[in-house]
Design a protein around this nucleic acid. Structure first.
Lengths: 133, 133
DNA sequence: CGCATTTTGACAACGGTTCTCATTCGCGAG
DNA sequence: CTCGCGAATGAGAACCGTTGTCAAAATGCG
């Protein structure tokens, strides 16, 4: 399952570079825009495809955000995110306890090959307490 | 924040009923189809709106599934889900430890009003181990 | 080099969700 | 009970992110 026949193309590399250069999470569209802005002529569909393969390869991290799929170059270690609902500032979290817990829970119920998604959102301290609903 | 001016309409009740009657998670579209199938004339947009308010009211649970938002009548207590990737069979989970952990982590980083999303997926034991990738 | 195969790019098509807006309905006031 | 205001509805268009199509170009192996 890991030996996917895959050619190396400059487009895919370009997407990967752009993703590395991006600060936090970016959507396929904005990444495409940024690339085009930087002189690249890569097509939108290609960006989508590249991002998908990048995720499959474990190089990119995909998260659903408000109906949009946002990607991010991810560190090799498994982690989760703490995201500010106001500004999108993201902090990476690692918690072995939680990893263990999810595996345990899945196993307890007879579920194999457990994966999990954990996202914590909040309002970070850079925002005045009275400013929002 | 909890006193949203809200009228009670038969449409919303119908949606709520339909959601209660549904087995597991259902999309707005399929719920609408089921309702129409059952003689209701509620519009699709209304189903979307009702589902949204239902979620706001804590009566329904929304989960993203493959680009679709699926809803489910949920128990009043906060919980998460363990979902089979093969058949969609769902088990509700409750874990105070995890709740506490998320709050703690958010607070540690100066994030207020923390919310979280936790989904665990796996392959449940009703499926033969050798059948899939 | 030559060929089989993969990948690309432009754009159409798709699907889910949201918006628009005139009409209807709920519900409190009189 | 009736009136009236504003929320809720419904039909369909509009939106938007994403995926499919398909001919042309690129890749890499022999």
């Amino acid at each position: 399952m890991t030996d996917v026949r895959r050619r190396s193309t400059k487009q895919r590399e370009a997407v990967r570079d752009a993703l590395d250069a991006a600060d936090g999470f970016v959507s396929a569209q904005s990444l495409h825009a940024a690339m085009r802005d930087g002189g690249s002529t890569v097509g939108l569909a290609t960006v989508y495809r590249a991002l998908a393969t990048l995720e499959t390869d474990g190089v990119a991290d995909a998260v659903q955000h408000d109906g949009e799929t946002v990607y991010r170059a991810c560190t090799p270690t498994h982690h989760h995110h703490l995201i500010c609902r106001e500004c999108g500032r993201t902090i990476e979290l690692e918690a072995d306890r939680i990893e263990a817990w999810t595996q345990q829970v899945a196993a307890d119920h007879g579920y194999r090959d457990a994966r999990h998604t954990i996202e914590i959102t909040g309002i970070c301290d850079r925002h005045a307490p009275g400013g929002d609903a």
